[in-house]
Design a protein around this nucleic acid. Structure first.
Length: 250
DNA sequence: CCATTAATTTAGT
DNA sequence: ACTAAATTAATGG
C-alpha cells in the first residue's frame, strides 16, 4: 500500500479530467450549431480566440438583454429566440424599431458608430445569447477580410430594410401599416402564414407607430373581412394577395 | 407541493 | 377612459 502513489494517481486523473473539461470549453465555438455566417469563415486560431473570450447567457421571455446608454463592452450574438430592438421614449411610449431573429448580432450599428449602445433589446421569447469581447471582435474585423465582409453584408442589409420600412411607414395610412406589419411577421420573422404574435397589442402598435386602439380596430376589421384569422395572439393569413395590395397601396 | 384568491396586465369598446 | 378577461403573483393549507 502506497498512499503517495495513490494520491498521485488520483491527482493525475483529476488533472486529465479538468484538462478535458477545459479543452471542451475552449472548443465550444467550433462545434456550435448556431454559429453566425460571419464566424463560420474564421480560421481555427481565430475561433479559439473567440471561444476563450465569449460567454453564453440565457434570458427569459420579457427580460431586458441590453439597455440603451450602456457601454459597448461586448458584442451580443443571438443564438436562439427572438428579441425586439427598441428605444425608450423620454416618456412612457417606447418605439420598436424591429425584431431580431436568431443568428444575428445585437447592437452592431452602435459598435462601429459609438461607444454606447443606442438601442435597447429585450427577449420576446426565451433567448440564448453569446457575449463576445469587443476588442476581440474588432481585432477579427481588422484581421480577417472575409469576416469583416460578412459583418458588413449583414449590417447593410439591416439598414436597407429598416430604412425601407421607415420610408414606407411615413407614407402609409393605418391599414397599410398594419398589413405591412402582418406581412413582416409572415414573411420575414416566421416565414409562415400562421404564427403567434410574440407580444401584446400595445407592442404591436408600438412597432408600427399607431395607437393601440387603432391597431386592434384594424386587426379585427381584417379578421371580419376574412383577410386574416386572429384569435388572441395566434394569427393566420388567409388572403396574402389582398394583404400585399393593402400594404402597397397604403 | 398544489389550490384558491388577490393583483396586475391586456384587449376591446 | 372604463370594463371584462386573462395572466401572474401571493397566500395558506
Amino acid at each position: 500500500m502506497n498512499l503517495a502513489a495513490d494520491f498521485k494517481e488520483i491527482d493525475t486523473k483529476l488533472y486529465r479530467y479538468m484538462l478535458k473539461e477545459l479543452t471542451q470549453k475552449d472548443n465550444k465555438c467550433h462545434d456550435c450549431k448556431d454559429i453566425s455566417c460571419a464566424a463560420a469563415v474564421l480560421n481555427s486560431n481565430q475561433l479559439d480566440l473567440v471561444s476563450s473570450n465569449s460567454q453564453e447567457s440565457l434570458f427569459k421571455k420579457g427580460e431586458v438583454i441590453l439597455n440603451e446608454g450602456s457601454l459597448t463592452s461586448h458584442i451580443i450574438y443571438l443564438k436562439a429566440g427572438i428579441a425586439k430592438e427598441y428605444i425608450k421614449g423620454t416618456g412612457e411610449k417606447e418605439r420598436i424599431l424591429r425584431l431580431v431573429k436568431k443568428h444575428s448580432y445585437l447592437g452592431l450599428p452602435s459598435l462601429f458608430g459609438d461607444r454606447i449602445n443606442h438601442y435597447s433589446y429585450s427577449a420576446l421569447e426565451d433567448c440564448k445569447v453569446c457575449y463576445i469581447d469587443i476588442n476581440v471582435f474588432n481585432g477579427l474585423v481588422r484581421e480577417n477580410g472575409n469576416f469583416a465582409y460578412e459583418i458588413l453584408v449583414s449590417t447593410s442589409r439591416d439598414s436597407l430594410s429598416n430604412i425601407n420600412r421607415f420610408i414606407h411607414r411615413s407614407q402609409k395610412k393605418i391599414f397599410g401599416r398594419v398589413a405591412e406589419a402582418i406581412l413582416y411577421f409572415a414573411k420575414i420573422i416566421y416565414e409562415s402564414d400562421e404564427f403567434e404574435l410574440p407580444f401584446s397589442r400595445q407592442e404591436f402598435a408600438d412597432l408600427i407607430d399607431v395607437s393601440r386602439e387603432s391597431a386592434t380596430r384594424v386587426l379585427l376589421k381584417f379578421n371580419s373581412e376574412g383577410i386574416i384569422q386572429i384569435k388572441d395572439r395566434s394569427l393566420l393569413v388567409v388572403n396574402m394577395d389582398l394583404l400585399e395590395q393593402i400594404s402597397r397601396k397604403g
